[in-house]
Amino acid sequence: MRKVSVILVLFSMFLFAGDKIGFIDSNRILQEYKGTKDLQKKYNEKINEWQQKAEKMKKEIEELQRQFQTQQVILSETAKARKLQEIQEKQKEYENFLQSIWGPDGEAKKLNDQLMKPFLAKVDSILKKIGEEEGYIYILDISSGVVVYADPGLDITDRVIDELNREFGPEVAGEEKVYFYIAKFKDIGGEAAGSNLGERIKNTILASIKDKENLEQTDLTAISSAMSSEGVVNEEDITQDKALKVAEKTNTRIFVFGNVEKTGEDVTINYFIVNGETASLYSKGTIKTKDSAKLYDDIKNVIVQKIAQLLK
């Protein structure tokens, strides 16, 4: 706090009556820029490739270690040393790869800088134009943490966002798609699995929302790739944490998953609805019934209604 105060005092020494200053929130500009999703998608696609390669390398090392553990009793000392050296070399190769991608000056940072460079250049150009045309002496960025207070009347963030988004043209009602994915619900126990309840619940939800405007199912290949990168083999085994990451990676706003258990006439459904846009759990709950005929009406009245509320 002391450092901030000193900066503000020094800054105020150079201001004179009538000097025009303004401020922006660069975090909000990035969030509301219409091209951000495309930039994020390009970034995530490459990150996913690197993650898959890293996972493959890791599994190769684990397989070599497993083989060594099972074979070491029959290997000669020379063969053991050779195997251990091979494992060490693979481990070193794996560590070097991780460092080359996610290190301080790795490929992930270079990719981010490369994708952000045109965006930052546009922002700089807009700020320069506003500054020169309207006589601003200073335009500060409050997201930097240096400014502890600013009059809202000095905020020009919306103007920068509007100028940035001109390239996308005016918004057309109903044009933007909302991407969703309904995972198969996990069958708990033999009775649920025997009735294939998990798949039937998924299909009931899909059938109930298929005609809703602007809804579009996320590309299945993208979902599969994202799940694989998170170590999810079967979609019904996905957890809340993994669902949030998959939704974020695939630009999926609505991600639904859960489980179902059947004991005699009693059916219990636990559902979870993730909001990928806010990276949070939107809703979760439990549906219980003894009436199988009523079960699917309950799904529509509860889960589908929750999805409809999220779309508003």
Rank of each mutant, 00 (worst) to 15 (best):
R2D: 15
V4M: 11
V4P: 08
L8N: 13
L10Q: 11
F14T: 12
F16A: 12
S26K: 10
N27I: 08
N27M: 06
R28C: 01
R28T: 13
I29K: 10
E32K: 15
K34I: 02
T36Q: 15
Q40A: 07
Q40S: 02
K42W: 00
K46F: 00
N48S: 13
N48W: 02
Q52A: 03
I61F: 09
E62D: 12
Q69N: 11
T70G: 07
T70Q: 14
T70I: 09
Q72T: 06
S76T: 15
A79Y: 08
A81C: 03
R82G: 03
L84M: 15
E86V: 03
E89A: 10
K90N: 10
Q91M: 08
K92W: 06
E93H: 09
N96M: 11
W102Y: 15
W102G: 06
N112T: 13
P118C: 00
P118K: 05
K122N: 07
K122A: 03
V123W: 07
I130G: 05
G131C: 00
Y136W: 04
Y138E: 07
L140V: 07
D141I: 00
S143I: 02
S143H: 12
S143T: 14
S144Y: 02
G145C: 02
Y149Q: 07
Y149T: 07
G153E: 10
D155V: 00
D155N: 15
I156N: 08
D162V: 06
L164W: 08
N165A: 01
R166W: 00
F168N: 05
G169F: 01
G174R: 09
G174C: 04
Y181S: 06
A183V: 04
F185L: 04
F185P: 14
D187C: 01
I188T: 04
G189V: 01
G194A: 00
S195N: 15
G198Q: 10
T204K: 11
T204N: 13
T204V: 03
I205C: 05
A207Y: 11
K212S: 11
N214D: 11
Q217G: 02
T221I: 06
S225E: 13
M227A: 05
G231N: 08
V232N: 12
E236F: 06
I238D: 12
L244C: 02
L244N: 10
A247I: 01
E248C: 01
R253W: 05
I254M: 04
G258N: 07
G258F: 01
V260D: 09
T263K: 05
E265L: 04
T268V: 09
T268R: 14
I269Q: 06
N275Q: 03
S280Q: 13
L281C: 01
Y282D: 08
G285V: 00
T286S: 04
I287C: 02
D291C: 00
D291S: 02
K294V: 01
D298E: 12
I299D: 10
N301S: 07
I303V: 13
I303E: 12
I303M: 08
K306W: 03
L310P: 12
